[in-house]
Simulated assay, not measured.
Amino acid sequence: MTWGITLILLSIIAVPSLLLSKKPNAKELLEKIEPYQGWIGLIFCFWGVWGVISSILGIGWLATFPIRWSVYLAGNAIEAILGFMLGFGMINKLVLSKNEAAKEKANQLREKLAPKQGKLGVLGLIIGALMIVLSFLPY
């Protein structure tokens, strides 16, 4: 359930226009979070990568619980991607600043993913909700 909740929170941060259209005072909340967005993105990126690794290590679930495993893998992949996009500045500053080749590849990846951030955010909301629902179902 924790994975689903964190994915929903990250998706809300990643899709501010969707949140602003639904709630008028959301802009104030998003402005309060903005200084910490890089750190939030960095943490969620690593959290998502850890989830993808955990999914791959738990590939035995695929035979028994294919839907649950697929949703878990997809949710963590989206979390890693959204975290990378939101924390790109911080990742660039802390991790990639010493290696120009890695920095250039990261910039190219960011340019490819940036137009898809809104769609990934909405997909993250859906998959996050599905992860929460699946956590309540018995095995």
Rank of each mutant, 00 (worst) to 15 (best):
G83C: 13
T6Y: 03
K27N: 11
K98M: 13
I127F: 00
K27Y: 04
R68N: 13
G89R: 09
I53N: 03
I91A: 02
L29G: 14
A63N: 07
I78L: 10
G75C: 01
I53R: 08
N107Q: 11
I40R: 08
L7S: 06
Y139C: 00
S55K: 04
M1A: 10
K32M: 13
T6I: 06
A101K: 15
V122P: 04
T2C: 06
Q37A: 11
K119W: 08
P24M: 06
E34C: 05
L62R: 10
N92K: 15
A114G: 05
I59C: 09
T2D: 09
K112A: 09
L30C: 05
G89A: 07
A14W: 00
N107E: 12
G121D: 03
A74L: 09
S135V: 03
S97Q: 14
K22D: 08
R110I: 07
A77F: 11
I91D: 02
M1E: 08
L130C: 07
M1C: 04
G51Q: 05
I81T: 10
Q37P: 04
F136K: 10
G128N: 01
L120A: 03
W61Q: 12
I8S: 01
L82W: 00
A14C: 13
L125M: 14
A77I: 11
S54A: 14
A14Q: 01
W3E: 09
I91Y: 05
Q37N: 10
F136Y: 14
T64C: 04
I81E: 01
I43D: 02
I40H: 09
N99M: 04
G38P: 07
M131N: 02
A129R: 01
G38A: 15
P24K: 11
W50F: 12
Y139G: 06
L86F: 04
G58M: 11
G41R: 03
S21L: 11
K116I: 13
I126K: 05
E100Q: 13
A106S: 13
L123S: 10
L29E: 12
F88W: 01
L134R: 11
V52D: 00
W3A: 08
S97T: 08
A14K: 00
M131H: 04
K105D: 14
G75Q: 00
K112H: 10
K27R: 15
V122Y: 10
F136V: 10
G38M: 09
W47I: 04
I67E: 06
L30I: 11
A106H: 07
L57P: 02
E104G: 03
N76T: 06
K116S: 14
F44G: 00
M85V: 04
G121P: 03
